[in-house]
Design a protein around this nucleic acid. Structure first.
Lengths: 339, 339
DNA sequence: AAACGTCATGCAATCGTTTGTATCGTAGTC
DNA sequence: GACTACGATACAAACGATTGCATGACGTTT
């Protein structure tokens, strides 16, 4: 179990350790004679040498590791994002290390601390509630940091995100185009731009055509099926005539509300049209198949990776721009003409 | 941006660097006078000192990092597992670093190499096809390694997994108890124990009551909805009388086959009963709600973490036992009495 | 009063790399 | 033939922490 170090390789090849180091370094190998280089390489292979990245990182002040913080792994939308990040990073020889914080601020603080102690070269985070602003600003002051998926307005931290406002607007315009004039939206968690953006976009689009729009929110503002059920009860408490179209701030909420309304005899899309957000897997296999807003997850991840790399390399201003990608409305059968 | 090191803290507190080190070390702090200890701690806080874990790891030969390799992040079943691992590890001050290999052997090799270069203290992997056996054995020879979720028979690598054979048996027994005697199973990927185990369990249970059992497999043995559709076509090609009950090796396949059969007028559970595997989110919200086999994901993760830790600490024999947890059959509406 | 034990701290080596600088031999130039 | 230039290699000092051992002060024992 005694590790093979550069020293052993050097001894085996009959050269000094510094020569061995150069011979094995991709960009400094030109400094050593091609014959010695071959001897060193052979020795390395023969002994099963594997560089100690920690020692290397210590000396060079660069670890080659990017910390990736994910808010919630349960969110099926996150898979493609992570894959995008991994591909974007892997191509440049960087290793992503990932952790989930369960969207908790306390967890986030602990994780950031550990990552900074690990001397990551950069951080990509999908976690970032308003209340995490100060924390993340401090982190960003120490190491290049990029927000992915979620923006954090006022933090000055660059983000690669989709356009939530546009998404909300799309939902509203779709419903309005179907003839609906009394709208409701089921609010997701507060303290997170993604949901606030959706709310604003939806509300504005409704207002611009003078459609009625009511916001429903549960005591615990969670983005879950259960929350959708609670919000269905809220909806039922509304005075008649009730809204005929509902925008749920994510698919889970939509699914919960559809299910709860069906149980009391309110059909979707017969009595009420419902739009979700995210286009989670299986949302097309439900009855009714869910009309929803799809996000470019993979691209988000890949571009976030690209952005953190360019920040590390010092290209681009620190204050440099956000990237905002446009989502796509996927029309299925949970929405229909007002009747 | 100039980092604060232990040297700065020591200077600020007016002590030697070694004393500062001891004062800040949780288990060696008793060696220093409580007054100096306070001075050092204060200096550390004041200067915003953050230990360089790389340097520390280099010197101590322990990084405090556990590599976690995930086969497929798209698999919704994996979320709880990861959470279990994180909790199991976090409690002991270890940091999990996670990477996905897309269930590809080439990727796996690259990732293992990187992790070993990072000098992880241990590895937990859910990736492990039969063809990865040699690779993982080599890895396991270098660093404590445990398999989670998936076993790898004949590798000698300890595993924390659910009992696939029992799961397959449960599916068969359930269908048989509903009166079905002509059974089919839709095979998942080859080269992976999880699926082979299910097949064996199902087949054996069928054989033990002399029920007929046919295996259907597509050219590309993928565990996807699309594969389920292809397998539905396979099923339709069977000579009459066709099986009245189907065991799909995972939920995606089940969903695909249900959908494809419905399109040709074969209803579930009216004409054919179908059992899935995994109990993915939303499988209870489908029409029909899916009867399936549920796995103890969180516990699997937590126990895998525990096992890798105890291997690192040298407790327990290397050859020590696998842990196998029993899955649970969740009966919903995709299965019914034979009619 | 000498010897000894104890407690607190300092000294210096070490982990495995990388890299600036020094050295050495050889070949080319005038 | 001395000098320069240069290519190839060796030497040694870092990087930031940990830790065995030495040192020194102080109090106790005989």
């Amino acid at each position: 179990m005694s590790r093979v170090t550069l020293k052993h390789v050097a001894a085996h090849a009959g050269v000094n350790i510094s020569t061995a180091s150069r011979a094995l370094s991709p960009d400094r190998r030109s400094l050593v004679n091609s014959d010695t280089r071959r001897r060193v390489t052979e020795a390395a292979v023969q002994l099963g040498y594997r560089a100690n990245l920690q020692a290397s990182a210590l000396r060079r002040g660069r670890s080659g590791i990017i910390g990736v913080i994910v808010a919630d792994l349960n969110n099926p939308f996150i898979g493609p994002v992570i894959r995008g990040i991994a591909h974007g990073l892997g191509g440049r020889g960087l290793l992503p290390i990932m952790t989930e914080n369960g969207d908790s601020s306390d967890e986030l603080a602990v994780i950031c601390d550990k990552m900074l102690s690990q001397r990551v070269d950069g951080i990509i985070t999908t976690a970032g509630r308003y209340r995490d602003r100060t924390l993340l600003k401090n982190v960003a002051a120490e190491v290049p940091t990029v927000l992915a998926v979620r923006q954090l307005p006022g933090s000055g931290i660059p983000a690669v995100a989709h356009d939530d406002t546009a998404g909300g607007r799309m939902a509203a315009e779709h419903l309005i185009s179907l003839g609906h004039t009394r709208l409701a939206q089921l609010m997701g968690p507060e303290d997170i731009w993604s949901f606030e953006g959706r709310a604003i976009g939806f509300r504005d689009a409704a207002a611009s055509v003078a459609a009625e729009c009511v916001d429903l929110q549960a005591a615990a503002r969670l983005p879950t099926i259960e929350a959708g059920r609670v919000l269905a009860a809220e909806y039922l408490r509304l005075p008649e005539p009730r809204p005929t179209a509902i925008f749920a701030h994510n698919d889970s909420i939509a699914i919960g509300v559809i299910d709860a309304l069906r149980r009391v005899g309110i059909g979707c899309p017969r009595d009420v049209s419902i739009v979700g957000f995210n286009d989670v897997p299986l949302s097309d296999m439900l009855t009714p198949a869910l009309t929803t807003v799809r996000l470019p997850g993979y691209d988000l991840g890949r571009m976030a990776a690209g952005m953190v790399v360019s920040h590390i390399d010092g290209e681009g201003d620190q204050s440099a721009g956000n990237v905002v990608l446009t989502p796509e409305l996927v029309v299925r059968s949970s929405t229909g003409r007002r009747c």
